[in-house]
């Protein structure tokens, strides 16, 4: 089984303390957990609903629990993980508020990454009258799994409204950190969150 390396992995790994207990929501083939296990000695579980993802995770030696995230994290006790991660899945979830609440219940910290809809290339496509298609959101409007796309500024406001403390925020474009005008120049946002 080949492991993929997505651009947010190394940022996420940097926020995981050695030997931490992690829960990776929507882990697909377990690549992130395998990376965190190899680089940080992290231990934990992935949650995946897709049959192929479950087989791939098992093949990668990653603990995977087949379950639907939309039904919450009922099987997990409060504060039972150091970090609960939702890597590039938030935008495809039906119940965004509920899953963020659940992540902050089960984890001491939550790590969320998502494609930034505010990236200039998306904005120009909308200005030209089309739904944006880009490397970070590579779908047509009719076949996209993404139903809750947002911008960096949107997510900042979401955290403020819901009194979620943003411990750190990293915005990337083509795997490089974007510090200037991140909501315009960044294509991938990664947040480290705690309950306020």
């Amino acid at each position: 089984m080949t492991l993929s390396m997505r651009p947010d992995f190394s940022t996420i790994a940097g926020w995981i303390s050695p030997g931490a207990r992690v829960l990776d929501l929507g882990c697909y083939d377990g690549s992130l957990l395998a990376h965190l296990s190899a680089s940080r000695g992290a231990r934990g579980y992935g949650i995946e609903i897709d049959d192929e993802g479950v087989v791939a995770s098992i093949g990668n030696g990653v603990n995977v629990l087949q379950s639907d995230l939309e039904s919450g994290l009922a099987g997990f006790d409060d504060r039972s993980f150091d970090s609960v991660i939702l890597s590039q899945t938030l935008q495809a979830m039906r119940r965004v508020e509920a899953i963020v609440d659940e992540m902050l219940r089960v984890g001491r910290e939550a790590i969320v990454s998502f494609p930034n809809f505010g990236h200039w290339s998306h904005r120009t496509q909308v200005l030209q009258g089309r739904m944006p298609v880009s490397p970070s959101i590579p779908y047509q409007w009719y076949n996209t799994p993404n139903i809750h796309l947002c911008t960096v500024d949107d997510f900042d406001a979401f955290c403020t409204e819901r009194k979620v403390h943003v411990v750190e925020r990293v915005v990337l474009h083509q795997a490089r950190r974007v510090r200037l005008l991140p909501n315009l120049l960044g294509s991938l946002a990664i947040y480290r969150l705690r309950s306020a």
Binding site: R21, R43, Y45, D51, V54, S57, I58, V62, N63, V64, L65, Q66, S67, G75, F76, D77, S80
Partner: peptide, 21 residues
């Protein structure tokens, strides 16, 4: 089966769970 899985997760054991349609 999920009861078994939960008890193993509570013990931080290595466990995978597949629910076959």
């Amino acid at each position: 089966s999920r009861e078994i899985v939960k008890a193993l997760v509570d013990n931080q054991r290595d466990v995978s769970y597949a629910e076959i349609v």
